[in-house]
Design a protein around this nucleic acid. Structure first.
Length: 653
RNA sequence: GCGCCCGUAGCUCAGUUGGAUAGAGCAGCGGACUUCUAAUCCGCAGGUCGCAGGUUCGAAUCCUGCCGGGCGUGCCA
């Protein structure tokens, strides 16, 4: 049963008549913070007392009188200023746990009114190799798609890949000038990505070289100005301290820019091949832009190349998804929307939403300085236009009720403008949400930037995780009391499951809004608060069933009486019964870390149970059966929960 | 300049939208494997929730001002 929702319904009824809007108060019913206060607590009497001018403890008393939770809870207790503490009745917990045993959904009720939710995630640029920066959107989006589906919604997972951008101009440019035909026929995608990096780097080299003198000059100017300021301050003019601080920051930033640009310029010039290319192609960036423009304009040659490049690129991308167990219902890239863009702009203009400004066509949203540019001065459309066309397509063709964009927080402003434009454009009934996540930081605590040539490729990250996991699998299995249990192929499979699970979990268990410090050790950790912890709990449970030759199906078909005499037993039953709530909250908040938190807590409760309550050796047959039932449920909660996060579990480890 | 976000234990992070004595993991210290897998469990230690005010029965959470950091900011996506 979705317990929290049920309790809130009961409170809603009790509150009806005591206040104008009960739903304002029902969210104040929540799990107890401290086991001493019972299982749940309601904090609504205090604010309600304030609103009505009554004594909060009296309000609590009145509320308790009207509250009907008889078969669920012991009689509620009022504590402190007016907290209402609830403890579930053991007989109810026992009955509900039995019911859960024969329920494939583990007590979770799906929503009554499903919505069609399009979830937009991963969305890498085709032809640029995937790196760790792509992980968050992919992993969070996949988890949300799974949880929303479980919740009963209709989900369309859409990979809005970048397949139409300037990177193709660069690749075409590279293909025409620097292709290694042998490499291309052997491994087309690797060669294309080499070409992309080459062109991108050389273009960057020219940009940096061109910008350097100006930047050096500005830096010198600022340094002088700063020196003057500091002199003035030293002379007693404290009022300019703020200015000095800003200037100091600017100087530091500029100095860093100049030195990193100098380093890059020197690096390119020191490399014989790069230097030759750079010298021979001073306007490579401009040429690449021209190739992109020709592609967009429908040039048959470029279009042909694009059509040649795209399939192998998509295939390589797919292979990474396959390994990660991530699937999409749709992969509609930017190119898919190209034919619709002109009509979008036209429609916006007709409705008076978009207007000309400095030669571009823009939508201005009140309260925002930045314009939402839907057509550039040169006539090209922007990703704003594409995103609007995508919304139109998803509503008109896919019949979407809701769209979630799992995208970096840095694009927050873009989405604010996009959603507001869409609403005014005629999609006010659709729910839009930017499911934003924080920046991936490097070891130096600064934003993880993919400096060319120095990226942590996604594939190598996965390989490393699996290799490390394999080491631990071997060590653990070799050290088992009765000797090793796993054969070679099982060990390899376990290492894959544990390694990939660890990477996903490392990402999911953070609050997605916070920035995130990339760390090999934590990403690959297999102890503590990690996916391995749940996988290990599963493996131990299945070990009990194997060793005891227990028929789990029978356990479910004929649920035994549940006995909750030991504290660890009751705590475990309680935790298991919170599964439905954890799923509900994860969906409402669109935050997978709610689910990871629940799973870790429950697995911890299980581990305590495992260490204090023997199962197979329990002599009382009733308790033994009851504990077997708790084990079966625990394993299913962990398996299901991990699956909702896109993480596989292990039978043996 | 303007806008958005962040500052919680040595480190990395939670904190269910204003609730009771602020919690985990890692690292540290001390215990628990002849008993279902020790990738585990139990315990100890560790905090002026950046600072200062304010709002109220009650603030890590809300408002204001500072300090420190990140990001975005008219034609990249």
């Amino acid at each position: 049963m979705n317990l929290l929702a049920e309790l809130r319904r009961r409170f809603h009824r009790a509150l009806d008549g005591l206040c104008d809007d009960p739903s304002e108060y029902t969210s104040m019913v929540r799990p107890a913070q401290d086991a001493r206060f019972g299982d749940f607590q309601a904090n609504c009497a205090m604010p309600l007392g304030k609103a009505t001018g009554k004594n909060p403890r009296e309000v609590a008393g009145e509320l308790v009188d009207r509250l009907d939770v008889g078969e669920l809870c012991e009689s509620p207790e009022i504590a402190g200023p007016g907290f209402i503490n609830l403890r579930l009745r053991d007989d109810w917990l026992v009955a509900e746990t039995s019911r859960m045993l024969s329920d494939p959904r583990l007590g979770h009720h799906a929503v009554e009114t499903p919505r069609h939710v399009v979830i937009d995630y991963s969305s890498p640029n085709v032809a640029k190799p995937m790196h760790v920066g792509h992980l968050r959107s992919t992993v969070i989006g996949d988890a949300l798609a799974r949880v929303f589906r479980f919740q009963g919604h209709r989900v369309t997972a859409d990979n809005h890949v970048g397949d139409w951008g300037t990177q193709f101009g660069m690749i075409i440019q590279g293909y025409r000038n620097f292709l290694d035909p042998a490499a291309y026929s052997a491994e087309p995608v690797a060669e294309l990505s080499r070409l992309y990096r080459l062109v991108n780097r050389v273009a960057g080299y020219h940009d940096k070289r061109a910008a350097l003198p100006g930047n050096r000059e500005t830096l010198e100017e600022r340094r002088l100005a700063l020196a003057e300021l500091e002199e003035a301050i030293a002379g007693g003019d404290k009022s300019r301290k703020g200015d000095a601080k800003k200037l100091r920051a600017e100087v530091a930033g500029l100095a860093e820019l100049v030195s990193s640009d100098e380093a890059e310029v020197a690096a390119v010039e020191a490399d014989a091949e790069l230097a030759t290319v750079a010298a021979g192609h001073p306007d490579i960036a401009e040429a690449s832009r021209a190739e992109t423009a020709r592609l967009h304009a429908g040039d048959t040659e470029n279009r042909g190349l694009w059509e040649e490049f795209l399939p192998p690129c998509l295939e390589v991308m797919e292979s990474v998804y396959r390994r990660l167990g991530i699937t999409f219902d749709l992969t509609l890239g930017e190119s898919h929307y190209q034919p619709m863009l002109a009509a979008v702009v036209e429609s916006l203009q007709t409705q008076g939403l978009a207007s000309d400004s400095e030669g571009a066509v823009c939508v201005f949203i009140e309260g925002n300085d930045a314009p939402f540019i839907v057509r550039k001065t040169d006539g090209a459309f922007t990703y704003a236009t594409t995103d609007l066309a995508t919304i139109r397509y998803r509503v008109e063709e896919l019949d979407a009720d809701e769209m979630l964009y799992v995208v970096d927080a840095r694009q927050g402003e873009h989405f604010r403008l996009l959603f507001e434009t869409a609403r005014q454009w005629g999609y006010a009934d659709v729910e839009f949400a930017h499911v934003s996540f924080g920046t991936v930081l490097g070891d130096d605590r600064r934003p993880f930037k993919t400096r060319s040539g120095d990226t942590v490729g996604l594939e190598s990250l996965l390989d490393e995780a699996v290799a490390r996991a394999r080491g631990i699998v071997d060590e653990n299995d070799d050290g088992k009391p009765d000797g090793p249990e796993l054969d070679e192929s099982t060990r390899a499979a376990v290492a894959e499951t544990v390694g990939l699970g660890g990477i996903k979990y490392a990402d999911l268990h953070h609050n997605r809004e916070s920035d995130y410090q990339f760390s090999w050790d934590k990403m690959l950790a297999t102890n503590g608060d990690s996916a391995t912890y749940m996988q290990y709990a599963c493996a131990r449970i299945l070990g009990i069933f194997r060793r005891g030759e227990i028929n789990r199906e029978l356990l479910r078909d004929e649920p035994p009486a549940i006995v909750l005499e030991d504290d660890a037993e009751r705590a475990l039953a309680m935790a298991l019964n919170r599964f439905a709530d954890a799923v509900d909250i994860t969906v409402v908040e669109r935050r997978p870390n709610v689910l990871t938190g629940y799973l870790f807590e429950t697995a911890n409760t299980f581990s305590t149970f495992y260490n204090t309550c023997s199962v197979l050796k329990e002599e009382d047959p009733a308790r033994r059966l009851s504990r077997l039932a708790l084990c079966d449920l625990s394993a299913r909660v962990f398996e299901t929960g991990l699956e909702l996060l896109g993480i596989a579990s292990c039978d043996q480890m």
